[in-house]
Design a protein around this nucleic acid. Structure first.
Lengths: 203, 203
DNA sequence: GTCTATAACATGATAGAC
DNA sequence: GTCTATCATGTTATAGAC
């Protein structure tokens, strides 16, 4: 196996674990074991655990940016594009992503934090904010409070997407088939965007 | 200092740290130090670190339940009561609480998890859900999707409340005075509830 | 009720052979 | 490029004196 392949294997394995359990809860040994390596071998590819974490996040964010940019540029209504964004992010966050902000703020040094904050902003906030900005400019949407423009609406949408129906809280969790799951997610994405646009009060 | 006083000191100190940094990131030594005790002294009051964490959470949740129950029973409109709930939760989460669900799901054993989930449901979900249920029954609110009744709307509101304006992201953070801060929070609470009820589209 | 001392273990990281 | 061996440190928790 070549150097580059091993590096990718480490990145993907680490990504899965970090997303599942967070920075602190995942040891370098566990990552190495899952890759079929010993723990010191990791240090041939990444100087520190924090460097590995940053690399994982940058890798993930660059992938998300290309998808979100593409969605933002589609010739569809604001609502349609927001629903696509919501579905994509719901699918991603099944693989994690929720943990990210937590770790960025609480476990990383200031240098790594600033770098990741910037990458996060460019990859996730800006593309989605451009959709909101369009809606605001066209008068389709209103700013709900002073200063709550496109960027802040994006943050709000991201928080809204953390919501999962209460059924997921029960411990049994007889999960449906994957294909069915995806349809449910799409329905869920539409519901949340619809709620954000129209509110809970009857019109 | 009596036994009971020391126990309360430990609970309050541990609560602050757990809320700030999460279960895993806070060592028993750090808690003990901040209480002016040595680390083994903690074990006179709590058998394990996990027991301490559970006690902290139960303590916190019981305090929140009494406040939320009281708000739910006020003779005000649904919107007014939801705004009060939102303001209260925003103030609390400044002190933490956000970390809770993360740790409950990811760091605790199944027994502790089930106990805390149940306490969380009773203390936070049910009181707020009763307000939503009233609004739904009166026809003031609509269910945005099949199965998305009062309980699920409560989960949704809780996620909405995690949102903070983007200004908090900048590293400078010249924070305003405490009194001013509280007024800003009240404004913020009103905005979020208003948005949830009326949506982003002009009416 | 709190201490000192310490067990038992996991962690991130380094040294150096191959 | 990956290994074995190991260091230094931090962790939860226990034993036993006072």
């Amino acid at each position: 196996m070549t150097d580059a392949d091993t590096q990718r294997l480490i990145l993907q394995t680490a990504r899965r674990f970090f997303m599942e359990s967070g920075y602190r809860a995942v040891s370098t040994r566990r990552i190495a074991d899952a890759c079929g390596l010993t723990q010191p071998a990791l240090y041939h590819y990444f100087a520190t655990k924090q460097d590995l974490y940053v690399a994982v996040m940058i890798d993930m964010l660059s992938g998300m940016q290309s998808v979100l940019d593409r969605i933002a540029r589609r010739s569809e209504t604001v609502q349609e594009r927001l629903s696509r964004v919501a579905l994509f992010l719901l699918e991603q966050s099944h693989e994690g992503m929720e943990m990210m902000l937590h770790d960025i703020v609480r476990e990383l040094g200031t240098t790594a934090r600033d770098a990741l904050n910037q990458a996060f902003y460019r990859a996730m906030i800006q593309p989605v904010a451009s959709i909101f900005a369009e809606g605001l400019a066209a008068g389709e949407l209103i700013t709900p409070a002073a200063g709550m423009e496109a960027v802040n609406l994006t943050f709000l949408l991201l928080n809204l997407l953390k919501y999962r129906p209460a059924e997921n809280w029960k411990t049994d969790a007889a999960s449906p088939a994957a294909s069915e799951q995806r349809e449910l997610l799409a329905l869920h994405a539409n519901t949340l965007v619809n709620l954000l646009l129209n509110g809970l009060r009857p019109r």
